[in-house]
C-alpha cells in the first residue's frame, strides 16, 4: 500500500482499475464482434437548464445549438447529449471537467441552471464491433436498428439490470455510460452476451 506522502496526483483509479483483460475468440475466425474499453476519466458534466443556457453552452463547448430530444451533438472530442427536458450530459476530455464546470457556472449566473460534475460517479465505456448492436439487444429493449438508432442518437435505458445512457457514435460504435458501481456488472454482462461473436475487453 502507498505511503502517506503528498505525492499522490492525478489520475487516480478509474472505474475498472485492477480488472484483467478478457478475450473470447470469435469462433468463426474473424475479428471479435465486440471490443470494450473504458474511456478512462472521460469528463462528465450533468447540465440542467432551459433554452437560456445556450449562450453559455456555446461559449464553453462550441455547441451552436442544444441537442434535440434523443440526440447528441459532437464538437471535436466533446459530446453534448440530451437526457431529458432541461437536462444534458456533457462528455469532455479527461481533466477538463472542473474548468468547464467553473466557467459554465459563471456563464449561468442569474439564470436558473445547474452544472454538476459527475465524472467519477459515471463510467463511460467505448464499445464497438460488427456485433455490437446484436449484443446490446440481448439486454436493451431499445430499437437498435442502425437506421433507427443511427449515429447521433442517444437514449437512457436499461441494459439488463443496469441503467445506461447510450450514444451511437457510428454504425458499429457506441459510448455507453453507466453508474460507476455498475460498470463491473455491465462489463461482465457484455462479455457474457458477446460470447457467440467473440469479445475483447481491453484495459
Amino acid at each position: 500500500m502507498a505511503d502517506a506522502s503528498p505525492q499522490i496526483r492525478l489520475p487516480g483509479r478509474n472505474a475498472l482499475s485492477g480488472r484483467p483483460a478478457i478475450t473470447h475468440a470469435n469462433q468463426d475466425g474473424g475479428k471479435p464482434g465486440l471490443v470494450i474499453e473504458e474511456l478512462v476519466h472521460l469528463g462528465k458534466l450533468n447540465i440542467r437548464g432551459a433554452a437560456d443556457i445556450l449562450p453559455g453552452i456555446t461559449a464553453q463547448t462550441g455547441c451552436q445549438s442544444l441537442p434535440e430530444n434523443n440526440r447528441f451533438v459532437t464538437i471535436g472530442e466533446r459530446h453534448l447529449a440530451w437526457l431529458g427536458p432541461d437536462e444534458y450530459l456533457l462528455l469532455c476530455e479527461a481533466g477538463r471537467e472542473d474548468e468547464i464546470q467553473t466557467r459554465l457556472r459563471q456563464d449561468f449566473e442569474g439564470i436558473h441552471a445547474a452544472v454538476t460534475n459527475v465524472t467519477d460517479g459515471l463510467c463511460a465505456l467505448g464499445i464497438r464491433g460488427g456485433s455490437v448492436r446484436k449484443v446490446l439487444a440481448k439486454g436493451c429493449a431499445l430499437d437498435l436498428h442502425e437506421e433507427v438508432f443511427a449515429a447521433g442518437q442517444c437514449a437512457q435505458s436499461l441494459l439488463s439490470h443496469a441503467g445506461i445512457t447510450l450514444l451511437a457514435t457510428g454504425e458499429t460504435r457506441f459510448v455507453l455510460v453507466c453508474r460507476t458501481s455498475f460498470a463491473p456488472y455491465v462489463v461482465d454482462w457484455l462479455v457474457d452476451a458477446a460470447l457467440e461473436y467473440g469479445v475483447s475487453y481491453r484495459t
Partner: peptide, 16 residues
C-alpha cells in the same frame, strides 16, 4: 473526495 482518489484517501488516513 473525488471517487477516483477514494482508495488513496483511505490508505493515507490508515498510514497517518
Amino acid at each position: 473526495i473525488r471517487a477516483r482518489h477514494g482508495l488513496a484517501l483511505w490508505q493515507l488516513l490508515m498510514n497517518a
